[in-house]
């Protein structure tokens, strides 16, 4: 198993309904990836900012970790897990 660190800003379409954030689709390098499953979610802090982390499986089968910073409202792709 290989984990590739990305640290990229990404555009994400998300559902904020019911006070819960759920990423639905994200665009990486011009390609649209549909989130087929949110594997897990956790919340951390950077100082006083809330940072929402997600592990998601995309329609290509790859597993990504992404986060959403509630202060600057920016989504980041942290890493992708690739089966070696």
């Amino acid at each position: 198993m290989l984990v590739e660190h990305l640290d990229e800003k990404v555009k994400v379409r998300a559902d904020f309904g019911g006070g819960i954030v759920k990423p639905l689709v994200f665009m990486r390098r011009g390609q649209i990836h549909k989130v087929t499953k949110v594997n897990c979610y956790w919340m951390d802090r950077e100082g006083s900012a809330k940072v929402h982390y997600f592990s998601v499986t995309s329609d290509s089968g790859d597993v990504y970790q992404m986060h959403f910073n509630s202060d600057d409202m920016v989504w980041h792709l942290d890493l992708v897990m690739v089966e070696s």
Binding site: M1, N39, C40, S55, T57, V63, Q65, M81, E83
Partner: peptide, 14 residues
């Protein structure tokens, strides 16, 4: 099995 279980949840392939 706290730590490994979290990793298995984050990365279902594990």
């Amino acid at each position: 099995a706290f730590f490994p279980s979290v990793e298995q949840v984050r990365f279902p392939a594990l």
